[in-house]
Design a protein around this nucleic acid. Structure first.
Lengths: 110, 110
DNA sequence: ACGGTATACATCATATCACGAAGTATCAAT
DNA sequence: ATTGATACTTCGTGATATGATGTATACCGT
């Protein structure tokens, strides 16, 4: 829950995309849905949503809900492609993890 | 090999620390040792080494080798602690990975 | 009626950081 | 003599997470 900021960076985009992969979602809901996995503030989320929109990974649709504005985000094919790429990157990350955690071979550990 | 820049960010520090966990190392060697796992330029590495030194995760010792300057880096207890923390963070990352890759439940996939 | 909390989105300033570019210098091999 | 490998340094830039702050409505308890 208190993950290193830098580690989060690479995961945020795909997490946000994953939050809308089954059905369109909106800012407030995305934050709450992701809470069990990764914490992100409103300013962070809306920055990400804007970036993903610019990258054509999602489309936006504004609705009125209970007199309040609500913007629904819809993942595009490019967005799903990004999620697939993440799976490939994950394999590389596993190799890195193994390198980092490989058994210590210092003299003193004989 | 062509991992997303943001994803790399969280891994670079621990990779550099891991590169010197068995024996002290120096810039040029670290870059080559990490090459099979993660690519990083000289400017990136030396920035990281400086940062890790400031954070007391490593100490530096300058030596002369074949008439050339060579700076050996030695991981500290704090550096090893950072690597342990990474293992904890990795567990969180696995949960995130599972969330992202969880089977699609869209209508069309019935 | 009032206050607090939840819902919902937007913008700005700041700090961190990876990286290319360019530089300095030595040594080995062709 | 030239090229490539070794080895470290500094600068500028662009990307980006986040706190702070602001706007606005709905709901619930007292």
């Amino acid at each position: 829950m208190m993950m290193d900021v830098q580690l989060k960076r690479g995961l945020l985009d795909v997490c946000v995309l994953a939050a809308m992969k089954n059905e369109d979602s909106y800012g407030y809901k995305i934050i709450n849905d992701l809470k069990p996995y990764i914490a992100l503030s409103e300013s962070t989320l809306y920055t990400i949503l804007k970036r993903l929109e610019t990258a054509d990974m999602l489309t936006v649709r504004t609705c009125e809900h209970d007199g309040r504005l609500r913007k629904y985000y819809h993942i595009t094919a490019a967005g799903r492609k990004r999620m697939e790429e993440f799976k490939t990157e994950w394999k590389e990350m596993i190799l890195i993890y193994q390198f980092v955690t490989k058994e210590d071979e210092r003299e003193e550990s004989r």
